[in-house]
Design a protein around this nucleic acid. Structure first.
Length: 489
RNA sequence: CGGGGUGUAGCGCAGUUGGUAGCGCACCUGGUUUGGGACCAGGUGGUCGCCCGUUCGAGUCGGGUCACCCCGACCA
């Protein structure tokens, strides 16, 4: 077992402490909710902007829909309501009043709502209720909208970023004239997510399709990207659903086709959430703290001066000014930290904890020699370079770090993906984590048995894996394909 | 909702057979420091989760209650 999996018993605690110490987020006093701190939010903002641009390149536009959903909307699609009913927060009243002892407030029983409102757990229902008014002709299609918002799901147990009662996300909702077009859109958005995860977050993902039991409530197909965390568990990092005509029919969204015949619209929805922050942290971090991919780091380069006397710092101030300017011109975000209330050693440790990819250090020694010390966060390697041409060197180094942490994560993940055909062996090995490619007979019974006996679930039927028929490792019945099985968050 | 645990300063904790509140970190002031998480000196900060009881006296004992955390069921 390697050192990261060895830590798995304390992984949860380690993760939680890291999130707090690195200044990303903290538990709110409000049950199950999270406060995202400015540094954490800065990373999320960069994710948002990048994803938003990628969506727009595929023709998607942003919009915004209400937070509150009438209860009756939610129950229009039978499977959908069943999937979410257990975790909905409900607004029942619209007014408070002073209590009898005049030292507090109580809910005014006279202000009961005729129809309760649900705080959105997801917005399919209210959006399709609106789409009904927007869609009349095949010329109105496809309709491609996305919203950035918060949603609430009353979870029993919560963990910072990975599962909180309220979370931030984007949810894309599209309407199409044909089944094929909707299916293609669902798959296209999955590709966008996979590209974002791998190229920006440097998190390798397995793409695939969910089994029937793991599907989104109301979907015909759910596509997913699954990432492996350092303890060998899977994290569902993004999903894209082909919803068929379920919502079109439930909300009576019909359009006239070219033949002047009415048809129900075809739907997709797709989302990623602040859970991606969890994926980012749990994929790259080490014992010194966070390791951020340069593409998403709010601070890409930090410069720290050495020397306590004001004139020493002033000399460094002057020397770094042109370098800062040059780095900025190359589009690199730089922080020059010459604060006098923290010693250099503290700053070194602190910026490592926060995952800043590159650190430059300058002291009197360097000013004399025309050099600078460069440290890269991913490997913690230090080297002294000439000051001349340092901006160009840093730019290349950032690219190299981005590549390196992706390759490191991919190598780690690939080393923990196993094929397994023996259930007894599987039951033993799954305890150490990892992804298992196993034959499955396609029944929900087998799936449930595996889950009950091992806590592992079928994450997806992966794409791009060469499939040969075999026999189910549990029942011995024929199997068409290998599926990805893992314990998950 | 089951099983376990914890509530004492902003955070982390100690508090003996019941005797009136303490340590570390952080914070403030002054000084010396500054190439890997500085040191010295001084200082600010608490109706011990809440209620009731036992007692001359409760952080400590008893009963109740609330909150939070961990392990399950649920889940992006």
């Amino acid at each position: 077992m390697d050192f990261l999996t060895k830590r798995s018993e304390d992984y949860s605690k380690w993760y939680n402490e890291l999130v707090v110490k690195a200044d990303l987020a903290e538990q709110s006093d409000v049950r199950g909710c999270m406060v995202i701190k400015p540094y954490g939010y800065a990373i999320w903002e960069k994710m948002q902007r990048t994803l938003d641009d990628m969506f727009k390149e595929t023709g998607v536009q942003n919009a915004y829909f209400p937070l509150l959903i009438p209860k009756s909307f939610l129950s229009r699609e039978a499977e959908h309501v069943e999937g979410f009913a257990k975790e909905c927060a409900v607004v029942t009243h619209y007014r408070l009043k002073t209590n009898e002892t005049h030292d507090g407030v109580v809910v005014d029983p006279a202000a009961r709502l005729e129809e309760e409102l649900i705080i959105r757990p997801t917005s399919e229902t209210i959006i399709w209720n609106t789409f009904k008014n927007w869609i009349h002709s095949y010329r109105d299609l496809p309709l491609l909208v996305n919203q950035w918002c918060n949603v609430m799901r009353w979870e029993m147990r919560t963990r910072l970023f990975l599962r909180t009662s309220e979370f931030l996300w984007q949810e894309g909702h599209t309407a199409h004239a044909t089944r094929e077009e909707a299916e293609q859109r669902a798959q296209k958005m999955l590709k966008v997510y996979a590209k974002f995860a791998e190229e920006y977050m440097a998190v390798p993902v397995v793409q695939g399709v969910k089994s029937e039991t793991e599907r989104f409530a109301g979907a015909l197909d759910t596509y997913t990207i699954e990432a492996m965390m350092q303890d060998g568990k899977a994290l569902q990092s993004g999903t894209s659903h082909f919803l068929g005509q379920n919502f079109g029919k439930a909300f009576d969204v019909q359009f006239l086709n070219k033949e002047n015949k009415p048809e129900y619209a075809w739907a997709t929805s797709w989302g990623v959430s602040t859970r991606l922050m969890g994926a980012l942290i749990m994929t790259h971090s080490d014992d010194n703290g966070l390791v951020l991919p340069p593409a998403l780091a709010p601070i890409q380069v930090v410069i720290i001066p050495i020397g306590g006397k004001p004139e020493q710092v002033a000399a460094v101030d002057a020397a770094v000014a042109p370098i800062i300017e040059e780095l900025k011109q190359k589009g690199i975000s730089v922080k020059y930290d010459n604060a006098d209330n923290k010693r250099p050693g503290f700053k070194f440790a602190d910026y490592e904890l926060k995952g800043v990819p590159v650190r430059l250090v300058l002291g009197a020694r360097d000013l004399e020699n025309g050099t600078v010390e460069v440290m890269r966060r991913d490997t913690l390697e230090k080297e002294t370079r000439p000051l001349e041409g340092i901006a160009e060197f840093v730019k290349n180094l950032l690219d190299e770090i981005q590549q390196n942490i992706f390759m490191k994560a991919k190598t780690y993940r690939d080393a923990h993906i196993y094929e397994c055909d023996n259930y007894e062996e599987f039951k033993e090995r799954i305890k150490d984590g990892g992804f298992f490619l196993c034959h499955w007979d396609g029944t929900a019974e087998t799936e449930a048995k595996i889950k009950e006996e091992t806590q592992a679930t079928i994450r997806c039927v992966p794409f791009g894996v060469e499939q040969t028929p075999g026999v189910d490792m549990v029942t011995g019945k024929p199997s068409k394909a290998r599926v990805l099985i893992a314990r998950s968050y």
